[in-house]
Amino acid sequence: MFSFGACKPQTEKINGVSFVASKHEIDHTNIKPVVKVNANYAAIMPFGFIEDISHPDIIFNTDRQWFGERKDGVIQYIKTLRKHNIKIMLKPQIWVWRGKYTGLIKMESEAHWQLLETAYSRFILEYAQLAETMKVPIFCIGTELEKFIENRPEYWKNLILKIKAIYKGKLTYAANWDEFKRTLFWDQLDFIGIDAYFPVSEAKTPTIEDCLKGWEPYKLVIKTMAEKYNKAVLFTEYGYRSVDYTGKEPWQTSRASGGNNPLAQTNAMTALYETFWHEPWFAGGFVWKWFHNHTEVGGLENNRFTPQNKPAEEVIRKQYQLQ
Score class of each variant (00 low, 15 high):
138 I>A: 01
117 E>L: 07
81 L>M: 08
56 P>F: 01
85 N>C: 05
54 S>H: 10
107 M>K: 09
139 F>G: 02
129 Q>R: 12
59 I>H: 05
65 Q>Y: 02
157 K>M: 11
63 D>M: 09
163 I>P: 00
156 W>E: 10
82 R>S: 08
112 H>K: 15
89 M>C: 10
99 G>H: 13
122 R>D: 15
107 M>G: 01
108 E>W: 04
124 I>D: 01
128 A>T: 01
170 K>R: 15
49 F>N: 04
99 G>P: 03
62 T>A: 13
86 I>H: 01
90 L>C: 04
154 E>N: 11
125 L>A: 07
64 R>T: 08
72 D>Q: 14
163 I>Y: 04
76 Q>T: 07
138 I>Q: 00
167 Y>G: 03
119 A>Q: 13
120 Y>L: 05
128 A>E: 02
71 K>N: 09
146 E>W: 06
72 D>E: 14
60 F>K: 00
104 L>C: 06
120 Y>T: 00
51 E>F: 07
66 W>H: 13
152 R>I: 07
168 K>H: 15
156 W>I: 08
97 W>V: 12
111 A>T: 12
50 I>A: 02
164 K>Y: 09
140 C>Y: 04
101 Y>G: 12
74 V>E: 02
83 K>Y: 10
135 K>L: 09
128 A>F: 03
169 G>L: 00
111 A>R: 15
146 E>I: 04
162 K>R: 12
137 P>D: 15
57 D>S: 10
155 Y>I: 10
162 K>I: 12
153 P>A: 12
91 K>I: 08
150 E>I: 09
168 K>T: 14
48 G>T: 02
71 K>R: 15
62 T>R: 07
58 I>A: 00
63 D>P: 03
111 A>G: 09
81 L>D: 01
124 I>G: 00
105 I>H: 02
162 K>A: 15
134 M>Y: 14
130 L>F: 03
94 I>A: 02
58 I>R: 09
72 D>Y: 08
